[in-house]
């Protein structure tokens, strides 16, 4: 990589790293894992930088690497795609009235299969369209729709969001909502 390319890459990292880090965190549920994921994706992007001509497409490229790397790590660790009994680390407690609900929703998100979680993060955090999400995930638009739909059903059915504690139970109108 020559000096000019390196400067371009440095500018890109400076501008986009915080946003990518947030996405990495949401994909993994852990700040450390999220940072690891983003760094791995950006290292691969660094190596391919001179071959990426459309700079405006870099974000999509990096996101795709992140999702695939996340899947690759998961495969390597040979974990089954089942709900985990241990919720991921929680950030500091929020004193807002609906913090408990959001904590429970966050925990329920961690129980989603990796692909469903990625689809939810891309759709609801990154605000990507279904077509853009399909591009990042490497699947069809129809698959994105069904994946997100199944994820929402799982969230609504999650035990923590259906318990008797009114602080963490989803309101009844959410339980009955359809995507």
């Amino acid at each position: 990589m020559n000096t000019r390319s390196r400067d371009e890459f440095r500018d890109y990292v400076a501008a986009r790293y915080p946003s990518l880090l947030r996405t990495g965190y949401l994909l993994t549920g852990s700040r450390a894992d999220g940072e690891d994921l983003v760094q791995a994706a950006l290292a691969k992007t660094y190596l391919a930088w001179d071959r990426i001509r459309e700079r405006e497409a870099v974000d999509a490229y990096v996101r795709r690497i992140m999702v695939n790397t996340r899947t690759s790590w998961w495969r390597r660790r040979r974990l089954d795609e089942v709900a985990t009994a241990d919720p991921p680390e929680r950030a500091g407690r929020d004193e807002a009235a609906d913090a408990d609900l959001h904590d429970a929703l966050w925990t329920a998100l961690a129980r989603l299969p990796k692909r469903q979680r990625a689809a939810v993060v891309l759709r609801y955090y990154e605000d990507l369209s279904e077509a853009e999400t399909a591009e990042v995930l490497g699947v069809s638009v129809g698959t994105v729709k069904s994946t997100v739909s199944r994820a929402l059903v799982k969230l609504r059915d999650d035990a923590d969001l259906r318990d008797d504690d009114p602080r963490t139970a989803l309101p009844s109108d959410l339980l009955g909502a359809t995507p």
């Binding site: 915080p18 949401l26 700040r31 950030a91 959001h102 609801y124 959410l174």
Partner: peptide
């Protein structure tokens, strides 16, 4: 739907709690 809103709020709230590294380029 309401759950859409709750998801967005939860994800954004969580995302804002992530501190950034001062100089990630060297590590990358």
């Amino acid at each position: 739907t309401p759950i859409d809103d709750e998801l967005r709020t939860t994800l954004r709230d969580r995302a804002t709690q992530v501190p950034t590294s001062p100089d990630p380029l060297a590590g990358i």
